[in-house]
């Protein structure tokens, strides 16, 4: 479904991503695992159109999307839940969720009704968001904001969900909850690309994984097998 070929990208100076190729099959959950600063986020941002890649290409359902702006990539069905959550702080929880469904809602008129089914479904999944639907997103705690960010992605009815560091900056208890949510998405049959620094957790929820170190893939394979590989530990603690 998603195929990234020999991608190089970076902000300034050296490439943070140096020729990475990955593949995500429909219905699978693939993890990108690596320590901070390994280049996971740059990779994810460049395949979603937030950074223009310097070389290489990204194919989604057979179409080359590497030169498209982020909004067009999103309209083709790739939904990124960005690192650091990036909820719309001044808007309410419900408005945040509605924005997730923006491309298929009418710009004027009865957009709330058009989205009511999805909203209800989502509030069942994350009851905390339902309780706080009219509260400002900025007043939520870190964990709730993460749930909101994931909820916003789901509202888009994406064909591929990309989660970038969903556990970042969260207390361990909340991290567990986030992974629980990811795991249930997977059971529901979503295609997921997960970029995550917590190797154990990421390998536990994914089918396949790529271990990334200093901008390149150093190991790849089935997650269960990688989890037993001591080289993964070495990539973190030296």
């Amino acid at each position: 479904m998603l195929k990234v070929e020999n991608l190089c990208a970076g902000y300034s100076g050296d490439d943070a991503v140096r020729g990475i190729s990955i593949e995500v099959a429909e219905g699978s959950c693939v993890a990108l695992v690596g320590a901070n600063g390994a280049g996971k986020s740059t990779l994810v941002k460049s395949l979603c159109g937030l950074i223009v890649p310097r070389r290489g290409s990204v194919f989604f359902c057979g179409e080359n999307i590497s030169a498209l702006p982020a909004s067009e990539v999103a309209r083709r069905g790739i939904s990124l839940c960005p690192e650091g959550r990036h909820v719309f702080v001044p808007l309410s929880v419900e408005e945040n969720l509605l924005l997730g469904a923006y491309p298929r809602l009418p710009s004027f008129g009865r957009f709330r009704r058009a989205a009511s089914g999805d909203l209800q479904h989502l509030y069942e999944m994350f009851p905390r968001l339902g309780e706080r639907r009219s509260q400002q997103a900025g007043s939520l705690s870190g964990g709730e904001q993460q749930m909101l960010a994931i909820g916003r992605v789901l509202m888009a009815r994406p064909r591929l969900v990309v989660l970038d560091e969903p556990s970042m900056g969260l207390a361990p208890m909340l991290v567990k909850e986030v992974f629980k949510a990811i795991s249930s998405l997977r059971t529901a049959g979503m295609t997921i690309l997960l970029s995550e620094q917590f190797a154990n957790s990421a390998l536990a929820v994914s089918d396949r994984a790529y271990i990334i170190e200093r901008g390149s893939v150093v190991l790849e394979g089935a997650s269960a097998a990688l989890a037993k590989n001591p080289a993964v530990m070495a990539a973190y603690l030296g």
């Binding site: 702006p69 982020a70 990124l80 990036h86 719309f88 702080v89 997730g100 923006y102």
Partner: peptide, 12 residues
């Protein structure tokens, strides 16, 4: 509020 996040929602 957040231009990048808005783009990610498909907003031009």
């Amino acid at each position: 509020a957040d231009q990048d996040a808005a783009e990610l929602c498909g907003i031009r």
